[in-house]
Nucleic acid binder design. Structure first.
Length: 426
RNA sequence: GACCCCAUCGUCUAGCUAGGUUAGGACACAAGCUUUUCAAGCUUGCAGCGCGGGUUCAAAUCCCGCUGGGGUCGCCA
């Protein structure tokens, strides 16, 4: 039975590197019909927080992952102590104060990594390893080895930063007489600057990406593309389809630089592909949060607005920002565009346009275009001479959906009101 | 510094296991089409095998060295 594990430490949020490690573990388990174990490495009681654990679990579920078993190392201190004592009795470890330390014999340790092949270490440079700390808690490596063995983990899939830990851990397996699992060390994810991924270079928490309006499908899709490829020049792929194609052997060895641009592109592709109704559904929490809607929102109207923005939105947060004028009157205004387009010579046309629109019994896309074009023709202006000023007056922006669609969605009342106010405010 | 890992367009990658490709795709960038704007879409373009040695008829692919990047050296995980 293939058994893998993801072992986060609840001392912080789930970051995208950890999420990808979890993802590859999960995909491998699913691809092999195996099991995925979630192990909470909360041996550091000072830094471990329940709220972080909640955040990690929420993020994992949000990304579409689940697990077959879950353990907490803080529940298992007795087990660690018991085995450490055994090593002590066998003379394989010794005490230093209250700490229990494993003797490291000089030898050559070979590990076979599923991604990198054979890696050889000389333990001469490895110091004796602390197993149990003075405070009675196990060290990371000891607890990790104990659990991987006792939980019958067949494959340890983790970040490349653990390669150097592996020989130490193998020494522990040997001392304990446990079977050594197979290892696969994933390449790291680097920040845009080529260095370590950090808050400085952008968001690192999965929950931050959620807040910014990235879709889980897009994030998961992007994450799996970092170091792996489904082949056939395919960029977009569902988790389900990726599982079918997944193979550890095809994972890259080289670290990958995280590109927010590409993530945004993928996200925009997913938004574009979703139905209007689906995009409305995922947007609602954001609209609520921004107080753009309350419980009595008009779904038809939302669908209308989403339709206009579906193909011009990288993230849901961008959607809210760009379509703010549909929901509030104090929408953001591009002052540069305002100065450029809202010139006094448009005053008369605005007045007439407002007047004529107000007179319409029905105001839809067709009518708005008819009225607008008639006015343009009558005044001798070109369409674009009035299109831009009107857009700026109604939306505060000089970019956006088609003017007539936008006016119809905004509604007669708001259109008239904003056209009239356009020159009053100055 | 010691030890370990890695190296194809600016970025993510296919190709490398079993040497022979006009080195393919995607993001970004540029241009064009379309258009009331911005997007989206379509078309086109730009751009890469880090360097040096081997092995071979033939090397992105195999070997060695160099350089460069990354990781680890905690009673953190």
């Amino acid at each position: 039975m293939i058994r893998v594990r993801f072992a986060p430490s609840p001392t912080g949020y789930l970051h995208i590197g950890g999420a990808r490690t979890a993802l590859f573990n999960w995909m491998y388990a699913k691809a092999q019909g195996g099991q995925c174990i979630l192990r909470i490495e909360d041996t550091d009681r000072e830094r471990s927080k329940e709220e972080f654990l909640e955040e990690i679990l929420t993020s994992m579920k949000w990304l579409g992952m689940d697990w077959d078993e879950m353990y907490r190392q803080s529940d298992r201190f007795d087990i660690y102590r018991q085995y450490a004592t055994k090593l002590l009795e066998e003379g394989k470890a010794y005490k230093d104060g209250a700490a229990i330390i494993l003797k490291i014999e000089k030898q050559e340790v070979k590990i076979y990594d599923l991604i990198r092949g054979e890696i050889v270490f000389d333990t001469e440079t490895i110091k004796d390893q602390v197993l149990m700390k003075s405070d009675g808690s196990p060290t990371y490596s000891f607890a990790c080895v104990m659990d991987d063995a006792l939980m019958e983990i067949s494959h340890v899939i983790r970040g490349e930063d653990h390669i150097s830990n592996t020989p130490k851990q193998i020494m522990i397996y040997q001392a304990l007489g446990f079977k050594v699992p197979k290892f696969a060390h994933l390449p790291l994810i680097l920040g845009e600057d080529g260095g370590r991924l950090s808050k400085r270079t952008g968001a690192v928490a999965v929950s931050d990406y959620k807040k910014q309006g990235f879709l889980p499908q897009a994030l998961v899709n992007y994450l799996m593309l970092l170091g792996w490829s489904p082949g056939n020049n395919q960029e977009m792929i569902t988790l389900k389809a990726a599982v079918k194609k997944f193979s550890i052997k095809k994972i890259n060895k080289a670290a990958a630089v995280f590109s927010l641009e590409k993530l945004k592109w993928l996200n925009s592709q997913y938004i574009k592909q979703m139905s209007v109704s689906e995009v409305v559904n995922v947007s609602i929490p954001f609209l609520r949060e921004a107080k753009y809607i309350d419980d009595n929102y008009d779904r038809k109207r939302l669908e209308n607005i989403v339709q206009l923005y579906k193909s011009r939105t990288p993230t849901l947060a961008d959607f809210l920002e760009r379509a703010d004028y549909f929901f509030v009157d104090d929408f953001s205004v591009d002052e540069g565009a305002k100065d450029k387009h809202l010139t006094e010579d448009k005053k008369e046309a605005f007045q007439k346009l407002g007047q004529q629109i107000e007179e319409q019994a029905r105001f839809d896309v067709k009518v708005s275009e008819q009225v607008f074009r008639a006015l343009v023709e009558e005044s001798g202006m070109s369409a674009s001479e009035l299109v831009h000023p009107v857009r700026v007056a109604l939306t505060g922006k000089d970019v956006g959906p088609g003017l007539f669609e936008m006016m119809a969605a905004l509604g007669k009342e708001k259109v008239v009101q904003r056209l009239r106010a356009a020159f009053l405010k100055r």
